[in-house]
């Protein structure tokens, strides 16, 4: 059986985390390749539907990365996202997933190293938690094993 490699979806704000990811690349900082970045105009665009769909499609972990609090390009989009992420934690918990599989982070576009660090830490966290019961690949594999 192949070792568990999580699928992680990162919803990143165009004005900060997405730039930070770019910078991390330019700086040749290493972070796990498991992160699939989805660019958003602002984390205020995130709704529980987005996050749930990612889990439904088999993501093992999902995070939202927005601007530092007080620095949102659209004034308070990241402050809109924060309670929505917390609310969605409860929703996935109801389903039977660990709420730790979902998180919100804040960073600026200048924080390339922070982006890599968050990616590594979150990867480690999900690795620890193991595959989501909805991840068809591992769910099927573990059942066969």
């Amino acid at each position: 059986m192949s070792e568990f490699e999580p699928i992680i979806v990162a919803f990143c704000c165009h004005y900060c985390a997405y730039g930070a990811a770019d910078l991390a690349g330019s700086m040749r900082l290493e972070y796990p390749p498991n992160i699939r970045v989805v660019r958003l105009p602002c984390t205020g665009k995130v709704t529980p539907v987005f996050l749930l769909r990612a889990f439904e499609k088999g993501a093992d972990g999902v995070y939202v990365a927005g601007c530092l609090e007080g620095d949102c390009h659209f004034i308070h989009g990241n402050l809109v996202a924060k309670p929505r992420v917390n609310f969605t934690k409860k929703l996935i918990q109801e389903v039977g997933l660990e709420p730790e599989r979902l998180e919100m982070f804040n960073m600026s576009a200048a924080m390339g190293p922070k982006f890599a660090e968050v990616a590594r830490e979150f990867y480690d966290r999900i690795k620890q938690l193991g595959p989501s019961p909805l991840n068809k690949k591992y769910h099927g594999a573990s059942a066969a094993a």
Binding site: F55, E56, E94
Partner: peptide, 17 residues
């Protein structure tokens, strides 16, 4: 509409699981 999508997604996941 949005709440329908959320609940449906939750139900599918829970039943799938």
């Amino acid at each position: 509409h949005d709440e329908v999508r959320v609940l449906s997604s939750q139900l599918r996941m829970a039943r799938d699981k």
